[in-house]
C-alpha cells in the first residue's frame, strides 16, 4: 500500500518553480542582467563613456583624437644639475604647448545669438 502511494507521489508533475531547467535559465538571465548593469555602471562612473568616441554621433570627430602616446616621461631618478633642469624646462615647454591655449570651451559658442534663440529686437 505504501509502495503505491510513493509511486503516485513520485510521478506527480513538478511545479514550474521547482523545475531545475526554469531555475537555471532564469538564474542565468538574472546573473547576466546584473553583470550588464554593473558593467554599464562602471563604464559611466569611471568616466570611460566620455572618452569613448566609438559611440554614435562621434564618427566624424574620431580622427581628431591623438591616437599615439608620444608624451615623453622625465626620468624620476638621477642627479640634479643645472643642465638637467634646463633639459626639464625644454621638455616641459614642448609638452605643455598643446594645452597652453585656454581659448577652448568658450561660452560664446552657446550664446543665444549664436544658436538663434535670442529675443528678437523690437520692430523685427
Amino acid at each position: 500500500m505504501n509502495d503505491v502511494n510513493e509511486s503516485t507521489e513520485h510521478h506527480a508533475p513538478k511545479r514550474w518553480y521547482r523545475n531545475e531547467m526554469v531555475l537555471f535559465v532564469s538564474g542565468s538571465i538574472l546573473v547576466a542582467f546584473s553583470l550588464v548593469v554593473l558593467g554599464l555602471g562602471l563604464y559611466v562612473s569611471s568616466g570611460a563613456d566620455l572618452l569613448d568616441l566609438s559611440r554614435p554621433g562621434y564618427t566624424s570627430v574620431r580622427g581628431e583624437v591623438n591616437q599615439s602616446d608620444t608624451f615623453k616621461s622625465f626620468p624620476s631618478s638621477g642627479p640634479v644639475t643645472q643642465a638637467v633642469l634646463d633639459e626639464f624646462l625644454t621638455l616641459y615647454d614642448k609638452q605643455t604647448l598643446q594645452v597652453m591655449n585656454d581659448d577652448v570651451f568658450s561660452v560664446s559658442t552657446l550664446e543665444d545669438q549664436t544658436l538663434g534663440i535670442d529675443e528678437p529686437a523690437a520692430g523685427e
Partner: peptide, 14 residues
C-alpha cells in the same frame, strides 16, 4: 569630445 579626450590625456600626463 575630442578636445576633452586630448586635454584630459595631456593634463594627466603632465
Amino acid at each position: 569630445a575630442p578636445t576633452y579626450v586630448n586635454r584630459n590625456q595631456t593634463y594627466f600626463s603632465i
